[in-house]
Design a protein around this nucleic acid. Structure first.
Lengths: 317, 317
DNA sequence: TCAATGCGTGGGCATATGCTCAAACGCAAC
DNA sequence: GTTGCGTTTGAGCATATGCCCACGCATTGA
């Protein structure tokens, strides 16, 4: 430093200005008068104080940690959107918090005048989010399912998110009247060629917002619990390295979609890699940490809604 | 509270807004968009965050403690002006820091266009301050001494602050060609009636700014060390309760000017009680703490320049 | 000595902020 | 229902802030 002395006194002045501005709450004009400098200089001192990190802000509120985690996730994984909600200490797996946020996103998207295509995936959080969307008329929008809602036994899935959201909004909607999994790859190909299905897929491909759950691939994997894949199929995917799934598409720890296994017979819309449209994953829970981390790494999603505990675990190496 | 639930979520939002504003550095407009509220509401949330003290500022700089002390002194003793400079650890008694500040005040006062009367008292800090005033022409101002500069032996005081400052500024100046102390009260009265002296006193009474030192009344009292008062006179004043003096006027621990003793024979201008014009005391040092506290209590001064160690001690009960 | 360089300064303008006011909203009692 | 009260909201405006630019001053190197 050429002039450590003047440099020092300059920082002193900056500290003074910062104190007067942030702590005493004076305006820069007042500070300028007090320090006998021009207003412009006072402004410079205040920003110097900031730039030199002489002053630090501390937010005494649980939210602060959440914001911090969200910012780190956003930065680390190049996310377009990230929201971390406080973990409910009474029920760490409760999707209520994240569902609220997801519902918020849905509502604000649907309230917009611009015609929008919203695509919905699987997952408790997504279902809960839809439940929380308050009824509004928005016939200009379209709601499309990313995933077939017919289970292996032929019955419709117990929770038709697309239909439910459409009820509340009067939006045009495109459910996907397909089994989640076909029995062979060729059968899958055949199915996808059917005109109405192709149309739904075309709409889904143009979706402006995708809201998906993230499933872990362990013995309690939702796709298995819900009866969409058998124990054997699940184990095969795990053998192939699967740690998680998004709308059924299993991926490994690096977030690469696995080649083969059930992935070859899935009817659901594959994720864009990397995600182009806003694709928000919503998930909480200790068990989902690896799956979430992988999905982020592989850029299967570019948005995330989770809770503090989960976010914190995802960031731990 | 009528609505603890909504109240809580409101504070959550406020915390979010505050985080985004102060920590992430977004504008209120951006925050409004993020939180889906109007800009006005975002502003309200940010100020709520401040009002509820959710966010705190910490200034990582030695100056911060000084500012804090200055603010407390200002508040506690209703000061118009208060400045606390960092204590020089190498020389806790060095008047350099406070002299710099005092010089600053003098300069800015003298630089003003408005014709001003500056009155100077005693003390090392005042002398050093004058030394540090950089030469400027300001013939519209007047500089007047609050205290006689002839010592007991008839010689002029070794440091003529008024003359020195006038040299540097070409301002009209009024030294007080009087002994500090007369030998009796009647002699004092007689002296003060002399026309030129009365004129000087009249000017001094109208002073817009008084800069004075604060002396302690102990065995090392400046008034005694400099030979203005004898050991016996000093002891008498101490017996009468004197803890300090301003331009020679001794006061007790409550800041009340003492009746009798040398106070009856002083030629210097008595302090206004309470001080009306800006009257700044400048002093540092462990030994002066009681004197400073008393001067503040008695409102003999309404401005103070000191250092961190002294300020801290003055505030300790 | 003088030009070159570079930092700090203050004027001025576009933008951001704080605040006021009237309107809307929710809520509770009737 | 509806009536009234208290709170919250958003438009609009005065003020404060951030930043660009041209200027000035000092330091440096030829």
């Amino acid at each position: 430093m050429v002039a450590p002395e003047s440099e020092k006194s300059r920082l002193d002045e900056a500290a003074r200005a910062g104190w007067l501005y942030f702590i005493a709450g004076h305006t820069q004009d007042e500070i300028a008068k007090m320090l006998q400098v021009s207003r412009a200089s006072a402004q410079r001192l205040v920003s110097l104080c900031l730039a030199e990190r002489l002053i630090t802000f501390r937010l005494e509120h649980p939210i602060a940690a959440c914001m911090e985690l969200a910012a780190r996730l956003k930065d680390l994984f190049h996310l377009v959107y990230c929201e971390v909600v406080p973990t409910d200490p009474a029920a760490p797996l409760a999707a209520a918090g994240i569902a609220e946020r997801a519902a918020n996103i849905l509502e604000s998207t649907l309230r917009s005048d611009k015609p929008t295509i919203v695509a919905l995936g699987t997952g408790r959080a997504v279902r809960a989010a839809v439940e929380r969307v308050s009824p509004i008329d928005c016939p200009n929008h379209q709601i499309v399912s990313l995933v077939g809602n017919i289970s292996a036994d032929g019955s419709a899935s117990f929770f038709d998110t697309v239909g439910r959201l459409a009820d509340r909004t009067k939006a045009r909607h495109y459910p996907m009247p397909l089994p989640f999994l076909m029995s062979s790859e060729s059968e899958r190909k055949q199915m996808l060629r059917i005109d109405p299905i192709a149309k739904v897929r075309a709409v889904a491909a143009k979706a402006d917002l995708r809201l998906v759950g993230i499933g872990q691939m362990d013995q309690r994997a939702q796709v298995h619990v819900d009866g969409f894949v058998t124990r054997e199929e699940l184990f095969e995917m795990m053998r192939l390295g699967a740690v998680g799934e998004v709308v059924g598409w299993a991926f490994d720890a690096e977030g690469r979609i696995i080649d083969g296994g059930t992935n070859g017979r899935l009817t659901s819309i594959p994720p864009q890699v990397p995600a182009e449209a806003l694709t928000i994953g919503a998930a909480v829970g200790r068990a989902k940490v690896s799956a979430i981390r992988a999905a982020l790494k592989g850029r299967l999603i570019n948005g995330l809604i989770t809770d503090e505990a989960t976010a914190s675990a995802v960031l731990k190496p």
